[in-house]
Amino acid sequence: MSKRVGIIVTKTVARVVIPFIQLFALYVIVHGDSGPGGGFQGGVILGASVILYAIIFGAKAGRQWVKQGLTDVFSSIGVLLYAGVGIVAMIVGGKYLEYNVLPIGHDAHIASHYGIFFIEVGVGITVAAVMVTIFFETAQRDKDDLKDRGSGDG
């Protein structure tokens, strides 16, 4: 068993497994409002899929797959989605993050359901993007690309 075989095995397994991991991540995210899990957990799983890819195919390949700009933009967009739900709730006359007044569906229950859904999606996107960012930031050995990033998801 040479080193090379090991690489082939991991690469092949990764190619197969990563889509499933991501699918699972999406499942966890979108079921955040009605079952265990949620945006954070799903986001971590989603991020982990990218990290797994980067570990196996190398940081450079990982960066080619998920560009820096992408993670930067998505970590912002996720928070904006979260905050946006709250603001929409305010605009339609409720309090910040008061889901059941959202103008979706017909009754408060459905509105609340969708409100939480969007929140979870927002959290998921941000967490995934931030996880990936943290990984690449700390993984890079190149001095010039060195970044520090302190914005976490509080």
Binding site: E137, T138, L146, D148, R149, G152, D153
Partner: peptide, 24 residues
């Protein structure tokens, strides 16, 4: 604690970023 874990992860991430730069 979920929130606290997020905070903890973020803190750790910042700390690692700092350590890397300290190493440099």
């Amino acid at each position: 604690i979920l929130t606290a874990i997020v905070v903890s992860v973020s803190t750790t991430a910042v700390a690692f970023a700092l350590i890397i730069r300290i190493q440099k």
